[in-house]
Computed example of a mutant assay.
Amino acid sequence: MPKILGWLLLLALLLGPGATHAGLPAGYRINLLTENFPPFNMAANGRNFARDAKIQGLSTELVREMFVRAGLDYSLTLHFPWDRIYRQALETPGYGLFSTSRLPEREALFKWVGPIAQYDSVLVAAPERRFELGSLEQARAYRIGAYKNAAVSQHLQGQKINAIDTLSDQGNIDKLLRGQIDLWATSSPVWQHHARAVGAEGLHEVLKFHSDPLYLALHKDTPDEVVQRLQRALDELRREGWSACTAEPQLCQ
């Protein structure tokens, strides 16, 4: 009997919480990348580079809590432009990025955890411009500016609409106000934050053409155990009704 009890104790230890950590090497860490995409992720000082505690946002706070619950170590860097960090997460094991859309053409490129948030894809016009658009197809005749390699830009490509890409959404605001583009393809509520930051008033939405959930995308070589632990942590947080607005009230003001 003592021998049987000993085997049962060993089995319980193997199947217990420690077992979920057994497949990861000591010091395992994920390098998380993000960009200024308010209110989901942004630098506290508004600049295009920040690390760790100097990065905030609704998605940022949720992702932090997910990693704590999952018992995983991470670093967090906000960088610019999106095209650069997207490529780094795509090509470099041990990396991930958020907040990003799980587009069909991206599905096999990453491993996914989410959704962590949601946004709308919209067309925005300058204050003096008026458009009557019932569909994205009707916008084809206009000059549309978009953020290079962002989900909105890739969605337009999928619809065979040639957008004028820039490396920043602030660049699109400038082009819109100068009349260099007719419409700005962007995300709501993100574009409102960018417009306020540069003092651009009177911009207005003329068409909402798509809605997307946002995800944490991990390099395709990320161990399945890591993905599962993060997804379980996220599901647990959702069941509890956890909110970044509760954790960091200033993000929702």
Rank of each mutant, 00 (worst) to 15 (best):
D224W: 13
L97K: 01
F98E: 02
A197L: 11
G114S: 09
L109W: 09
A217T: 01
V227M: 02
L176A: 12
S187M: 15
G199H: 08
G179E: 05
V152E: 07
L177G: 05
Y95A: 11
L218P: 03
Q154E: 14
L183C: 02
S188T: 14
T166G: 05
V113C: 02
E132Q: 15
L167D: 06
F131D: 00
F110E: 09
Q170L: 10
G145D: 02
R129I: 10
S188P: 03
T100C: 12
E137H: 10
R106C: 02
L136A: 07
V122I: 11
Q138Y: 02
L136Y: 10
D165K: 07
A141F: 03
K160V: 11
I161P: 05
H219I: 00
H194K: 15
Q170G: 08
P189A: 11
S168D: 10
D224F: 09
D182L: 02
S121E: 14
E128I: 12
D182I: 04
Y95M: 13
P93T: 10
I181C: 00
D120N: 11
A185Y: 00
L136M: 11
I116T: 02
Q170T: 11
L109C: 05
L177Y: 04
E137P: 05
R143A: 12
F209W: 12
T92G: 05
P189Q: 12
L156Y: 01
A185W: 00
L103M: 12
E128Y: 11
E105T: 11
Q118R: 11
H194F: 14
H210Q: 14
E201M: 11
D212A: 13
R102K: 13
P115G: 07
G145Q: 00
S211A: 15
F209S: 04
P223E: 06
D165C: 12
P115D: 09
K160H: 13
D182Y: 05
Q228K: 11
V124D: 04
L109P: 04
I164V: 14
A150T: 15
E137D: 15
Q118F: 02
G199N: 06
P104G: 08
W184L: 14
P93V: 10
L230P: 04
S188Y: 13
L183H: 02
P223R: 04
E132V: 09
L214D: 02
G134N: 14
A126V: 01
E107N: 04
N172F: 04
I164H: 15
